[in-house]
Nucleic acid binder design. Sequence first.
DNA 1: GCCGAGAATGAATCCATCC
DNA 2: AGGATGGATTCATTCTCGG
Lengths: 246, 246
Amino acid sequence: MVEPYYDRAGITIYHGDCFTILHELEGIDAFVTDPPYSSGGAFRSDRTVSTVSKYVQTQTQAYRPEFGGDNRDQRSFMTWCGMWLSAAYNASNANAIVCSFIDWRQLPTLSDAIQAGGWTWRGVAVWSKKFGRPTPGRFSNACEYVVWGSKGPMLQREVYPPGVFECSPPSGDAKQHIAQKPEAVMEWVLSVVPDGATVCDPFMGSGTTLRAAKNAGCKCIGIEADEQYCEMAAKRLQQDVLPFAT
Amino acid sequence: MVEPYYDRAGITIYHGDCFTILHELEGIDAFVTDPPYSSGGAFRSDRTVSTVSKYVQTQTQAYRPEFGGDNRDQRSFMTWCGMWLSAAYNASNANAIVCSFIDWRQLPTLSDAIQAGGWTWRGVAVWSKKFGRPTPGRFSNACEYVVWGSKGPMLQREVYPPGVFECSPPSGDAKQHIAQKPEAVMEWVLSVVPDGATVCDPFMGSGTTLRAAKNAGCKCIGIEADEQYCEMAAKRLQQDVLPFAT
DNA sequence: GCCGAGAATGAATCCATCC
DNA sequence: AGGATGGATTCATTCTCGG
């Protein structure tokens, strides 16, 4: 069994590759995560290939060119998402929930991947950031999306979470990770997760999901490949335990 | 050439099959439309019932006519969307814009189809209805989406439309079609369309797009297969011309 | 005309029942 | 792997209507 990087008060952090760790896990009730989007830019040269090629090494080739410029990264992103979603499915209990953030460009790919991984796709929820970067002549990209689903039928629950949640992105000192989500957004997403569930975030980053899950009374598990973020998250989570925490 | 059902003051309505009519058209600057979604429910039997019982179930329901073309399965929906988007592409000028409404379930299919039809997919805009019908334990489906793109590069314009638009759906006497959009929502979508453009809605319904396009100073063309809706739209549009219109 | 109370509404989803 | 039908459920917002 893999050794945790941090393990205290129902919070466990693993430092390592998500596939390796997921393979060892079981009994998860909910996956709530914000994976790297491999997005940005309409052309391949605009993208950072490193994050993708780090996880997937497949022979990439031109694929249905009539579907537009750049399907190579799209294809490997699809494969990679299918892989982690499938591993997550296998580590889950029956009736588990999966919620993954994504941007508009990869939304269709992720909705395919979630189903390819065995999950039942249940819907899309919208995080409205109020103001996206304005672009002349175009709709601003002011939203990110939560593609979500379940492992088989869902448990009956008496909550009615809104389908749109409006909240400004973090800024200033509160922001420790490029893609960091506000804690309020994570709490909103967690409202579809049963009380006392075991929540796992396989792409933990600075640990916002874990903080929100802990506040919701959940047991939680984070996985992160970058040790710098493991340390940062452990510090953030330990702070909360102190009596004089803010 | 096909005979118009209505043709007055820069507004033309064709009654007939959209493929037949689109084949005859040319010189369109923007397609703005709200096609039948062929959505609803997780089971085929839920999708194949009539639009009235599928989308509305309350006790004292005002009568609104059925609309056709809403019972395709995923595969034929994809093919059908590819066909009309391709026909629309062929009827378009260079730099034309396409904007099509869709719900969460069919968003990935439509984003594939728009690219299969030759368009460059530019993004997703969100119409937030504020509050959808609640479903226990799940995010309410409070949004519809605008999948949009262009024929080649876009013209430079000095407008900055928001990526999310919040507006309640029409109700009461103002609602004549089950899936009718508020005029304000159509005006928001039309903000990416150049001034004085020729706008076409190949699934006109009760004619909201045409009203909004006319108010925006556009020439407009509507196509509708159901004569009942052609009549309804013609009446709505003619009303606006009268000096004592409300 | 304004305000408050009560009623109606919704591009929904699931499931039991029937043929 | 059967397929269609109808009923039950839900609550913030919007509408209606009376005072």
